[in-house]
Design a protein around this nucleic acid. Structure first.
Lengths: 348, 348
DNA sequence: CTGAAAGCGCTAACAG
DNA sequence: CTGTTAGCGCTTTCAG
């Protein structure tokens, strides 16, 4: 690996001091036409480029942003990162990306590492905004940052979806379809404060609508046998006719598992997801879900961080109530009252 | 933004020289128990962490890798990046990510920037490996690198799919279903050497099978009116019964557009994609496609770069012929000979 | 207009 | 065992 040339090499070749080279190249001071000429020539010959490392050391700024998210396997985050990355790129910042795979210790360590790399700011989706050690250390160092998807714990900025209200909305949709016994499916709550909010809203919605408390099925990130788990879950809660999954990926997996155990969607069980990933519109039946705009959120979070860095007014955020919309789909259908005594007559 | 404490601060507090601090913290030299104690205490008190910038300057190594890919909107790349990121992360390297959105100038500039940030290596998917200026400058600086998806231009390493052979295979599948007039759909070729290889293989396959030369429809990255373009394309080539799209996203879009113009898939037109993204298995009809393993390719490319860096033997690559498999799906069906004189009788 | 020199945070060589 | 110092590449005074 060849050593790139340094400002010294240029100075030597151009027969001048390093300060002059710096001045010329940065147009940060005077220089006679001839000197300029010689410097530029030398730069050309040596294919010189400034080392950002040297610069960073002296300016204590890196033009690099740390971006921490759970995973790129979920298109929600992939889209969001796309937005984050492109916004920073346009502003001349590079993005250092870490996927935590929903592991808190990875999250904490990654943030430490990024801080020691002196990133100028952070955009992050943490497992739990209230308890994130990483987030706390960012805050104590007062590094510009913005949460993404996590609702802010008062002191921080964030671009996020109103998970709670969205979940209320989901209940309403179920109710309007005649469902009265619902289930909630999520990854183990410790991995995501969003899922927890959605559950909270869901419970509250059920309560308001005088439904029974929704049954809860929590699964691990690496669950393979969702079929079995779902079968048991439905055996224990036989009256459930609607399942709310805390994200679309889970919802899609649920639909497949339901089919695997001979249940029809939406005839036997309706399913509603969360996120509004594109795929949901292409499957059959299409997925009823809460539609969100991850890319836009990513751009917003990035803009917020840029504003902090440049000491500008923070960008306008769309109202929280507009952070989601309900997207109807074939996976949600009217409940068939097969458990009300008239039995299967209506169902078939 | 608070200034983090430096090794000097620690030295002062611990009443010793900076070298001692360095030695203790890096276990890179002797130190009496007491000194160690004092240093560790000071570190604790100041919450000291090494600045990687200072380290990088002195070691001319950054433990940072540049990763350049077209876009995260395509799950193929998202998955691949996930693999790249996780592999490097496990090895203690961070990943600097740039999405080019298929723009060559962005690609070139991004690579320059990453080089000036002194990344220790590169994993990249370039628009065209043979002509990429960025790739050339990486090579001339002899920075460890590995291509991803691009086939290597002899001198470079790469983890990629055998696009050409895969396309041959697609022709075979079409032929076995009785199709004799095919079309090829791709983004403008200048954006991707992979698409070009697929087209080449497709033409060759058609030739070998004594089919007519496939008709070509090239579209822009930002095409909105695929419906119209497809309608015209099929009007100009009315005998086409099978379309090979150069990637799954395009294939899915094609299917939707086909429906929009009242054509049934696969009854009127069969469609085959490329990549094997997960979604393809969930849509209806499921997408016939070339299945690949982007995550694994990403991991492989990352391992290759790590091997270069650590001067280890390069990792084994699976045989090129195993780089893909054909995945059957409902979007590919036997051709109905409606143009052979018996007209629509058979078709309905 | 230009160059010498200090200093950003760190490591490694060299004295003590 | 420990401290001093030079130097990594750059910018920025400060003299000339």
């Amino acid at each position: 690996m060849k050593q790139p040339s340094t400002i010294k090499d240029v100075a030597k070749l151009a027969q001048c001091g390093v300060a002059t080279v710096s001045r010329v190249l940065n147009s940060t001071g005077p220089a006679s036409a001839e000197t300029k000429e010689r410097v530029l020539d030398a730069v050309e010959k040596l294919k010189f480029e400034f080392s950002e490392v040297g610069r960073s050391l002296q300016s204590s700024t890196t033009r690099t942003i740390g971006c921490v998210i759970p995973s790129l396997a979920n298109p929600v985050y992939a889209d969001a990162v796309q937005g984050v990355q492109e916004t920073f790129h346009e502003a001349g910042y590079q993005t250092l990306l870490v996927c935590t795979n929903y592991k808190r210790n990875v999250e904490t360590k990654a943030i430490r590492t990024l801080m020691s790399k002196q990133v100028d700011g952070f955009v992050l989706t943490v497992s739990d905004a209230l308890s994130s050690q990483g987030l706390r250390s960012i805050q104590s160092r007062e590094i510009p940052h913005c949460l993404l998807f996590n609702r802010a714990p008062s002191d921080a900025q964030s671009w996020a979806v109103d998970d709670y209200s969205a979940a209320l909305r989901v209940v309403d949709e179920f109710v309007s379809m005649g469902h009265i016994h619902l289930g909630f499916l999520a990854l183990k709550f410790k991995t995501s404060d969003r899922a927890r909010q959605r559950y909270k809203g869901f419970i509250e919605g059920c309560f308001t609508n005088k439904l029974e408390r929704p049954a809860l099925l929590e699964i691990a990130e690496d669950t393979e046998n969702l079929d079995v788990l779902l079968a048991n879950f439905l055996k224990e809660n036989p009256s459930i006719t609607g399942i709310f999954a805390s994200n679309d990926i889970l919802a899609l997996a649920t639909i497949r598992s339901l089919r695997a155990i001979q249940l029809r969607v939406p005839k036997d069980v309706s399913v509603v997801g969360f996120d509004g990933i594109h795929v949901g519109e292409m499957v059959e039946p299409s997925l009823a879900t809460i539609a969100t705009e991850p890319r836009m959120l990513g751009q917003g979070a990035a803009q917020t961080v840029l504003s902090f860095i440049n000491d500008l007014p923070l960008p306008e955020q769309p109202e929280l109530s507009l952070s989601f919309s309900f997207r109807n789909g074939g996976s949600l259908a009217p409940r068939i009252a097969e458990n009300l005594g008239d039995d299967d007559v209506i169902a078939f």
